[in-house]
Nucleic acid binder design. Structure first.
Lengths: 231, 231
DNA sequence: CGGCTGATTGAGCTATGTCAAGGGCAGTGG
DNA sequence: CCACTGCCCTTGACATAGCTCAATCAGCCG
C-alpha cells in the first residue's frame, strides 16, 4: 500500500460514500478541510468516552468499532471498510464517543472536522439524506445482531460471522479480513476458547479449512445451515 | 383514558416529538393527513417483514418493539412511550419492517402516511435534524444493550432493566410499565424462569418488593451495584 | 536457539436454559 | 357466593452450552 495522502477529487472510495452527492465545489472544500492519517494495525482512531472531533472517512484498510463489556471483554460492534464513515454519530448526538475505533489492518483514514461536516449536513440535503439512510441501515443491523446474540447459539453466530466477513464487501475489500481468534470471539459475543472450539468443529465437518491460522470457507451452504438450524 | 382522537394542534405530546419544530401550518397539515387508532394491550401496530406505511406517533400508552429470535423467543428491542415515533426508519431504509410493534398497554397511536412524513423530512430541516438526532441516540442505546447482552450476566441486565423501566420516563409515563415476567425476560435477553429466579433473589435481598405481581424498587443503590459488580 | 505471541486443547465449573409440576389470582358462569 | 377455568407466576430438578483456568503447541522474529 502506498502511503500517499488521498485526494478527495480523485479518491477511489468517494463514489461509495455520501460524498458522491457533493458537487465539484463541495468536494474541493472537503479536500482542503480534511486531514489524513495512517494507522498501523492495532492503533486507535478514537476512544470511547472521548470527545468527538469530526467525521472519519476510511480511505483504505479496515477498522473495528468496539466497546468493552463486563470483565473488560472486547465486543466488536462492527467492522468498517473503505468508504465507510465512522465517528460522526457522536457529533450528531453531541455526546462522547460511544465506542472506540481501532485499525484491524494498516489503514488510511481522513478526518473532516466537525464544523465542515455539519456545514455539509446543513446545506446539502442529498448528503444528509444519505447519512440518515446509512444510520438507519446500521441501526437495523445492530438490532439484528442484538437479537442473534441474545438467543442464537454461538455456533450459529460464528457461522454468520464467517459468512459475513468473507463475502460481505467484495467490492472494495480484499476478500478476507484477518481477525484474530480473540477478535472473532469479540465479534460474535463469546470468548476466544469457545470460538476456537467451534472453528475446530467446523473444520472437522469440512465446512472450513484453516491454513496458517487463516480461515477459508469450503461449504457456504453448510454454514448457512449451521446459522439457521436454531430458528 | 378517554378515547378521544388526539388533535395535533392541542396534543399534549407534541412538544416532545420532532413535530415541535413544525410551524402552525405544518402542524395543521399533519393533523389533517394523520389518522388515529386505538389499540388494546397485545395488539400489533405493525409486523416485522411487512411493508412500512408511515410514521406512527404514540399519543398515549406504551409499545414494545420486538423481534423473534431462535426458537421463537421474543426479544424486546425497546419500549416506546408517548411522544416517541416508531416505524419510520423502514421508510428511510426502504425496506420491510425490521421488528414488530405491539401495545403493552392500551394505546392511542397516530399514523402519518409515508408521503406526508417524507415531505416534512425534505422541507423542514429542523424536523429532519431532530429525527436524525433521535435515530443516532437510539442506535447508541442499541449498541450499549448489545454489549450488555453479550457479556453482562443476567443478574446485572435484570437490575438495569428494572432501573430503566421504573425511572426512565418520568415525564409522561405513569411510573410503572407493567410487563409480564416473560416480557421482562425478552427485554433482557433471557427466559422467563431465569428472570423470575433473579427477581426472587432480589426480593430476598430486599432490593425490590413484589405486590400482586407488581415490582416495586426498594433499593436503587443496591440495584446499581448489582448492575456494576461485573465490570 | 530462546523467547514471544497467538492458537489449541483439556478438565472442570457454573450460569442459564429446559421440562415439569404446582400455586395464586381474576374473571366467568351458574 | 362459590366453583370453575385459564393465565400467569413460581419453584424444583435436571441438562448443557459456554466460561475459566491451565497446560501445550505452532509459528515467527531477533
Amino acid at each position: 500500500m502506498k502511503n500517499e495522502t488521498p485526494d478527495c477529487r480523485t479518491c477511489s472510495v468517494r463514489d461509495v460514500t455520501p460524498f458522491e452527492h457533493c458537487n465539484r465545489d463541495q468536494v474541493l472544500e472537503v479536500q482542503f478541510a480534511k486531514s489524513c492519517n495512517f494507522y498501523k494495525k492495532g492503533q486507535f482512531i478514537f476512544s470511547e468516552n472521548s470527545l468527538p472531533i469530526g467525521l472519519f472517512c476510511i480511505s483504505s484498510g479496515h477498522l473495528k468499532l468496539v466497546k468493552y463489556g463486563s470483565g473488560g471483554k472486547e465486543q466488536i460492534l462492527r467492522i468498517a471498510k473503505p468508504g465507510d464513515f465512522v465517528g460522526f454519530r457522536s457529533l450528531i448526538t453531541r455526546r462522547r464517543y460511544n465506542a472506540s475505533a481501532i485499525a484491524v489492518s494498516d489503514a488510511a483514514v481522513c478526518l473532516l472536522p466537525r464544523k465542515d461536516f455539519q456545514h455539509l449536513l446543513n446545506t446539502n440535503h442529498e448528503f444528509s439524506a444519505e447519512i440518515m439512510q446509512r444510520v438507519c441501515e446500521l441501526a437495523e443491523k445492530t438490532e439484528n445482531k442484538l437479537t442473534d446474540i441474545a438467543y442464537k447459539p454461538a455456533r450459529g453466530r460464528i457461522a454468520d460471522a464467517l459468512l459475513l466477513l468473507s463475502n460481505a464487501d467484495t467490492e472494495l475489500c480484499q476478500k478476507d479480513i484477518q481477525l484474530s481468534r480473540e477478535e472473532l470471539a469479540g465479534f460474535t459475543g463469546t470468548v476466544k476458547e469457545t470460538a476456537i472450539r467451534i472453528l475446530s468443529e467446523f473444520k472437522r465437518n469440512n465446512l472450513i479449512a484453516i491454513k496458517k491460522r487463516k480461515i477459508e470457507i469450503l461449504d457456504i451452504g453448510g454454514l448457512e445451515q449451521m446459522s439457521n438450524q436454531f430458528d
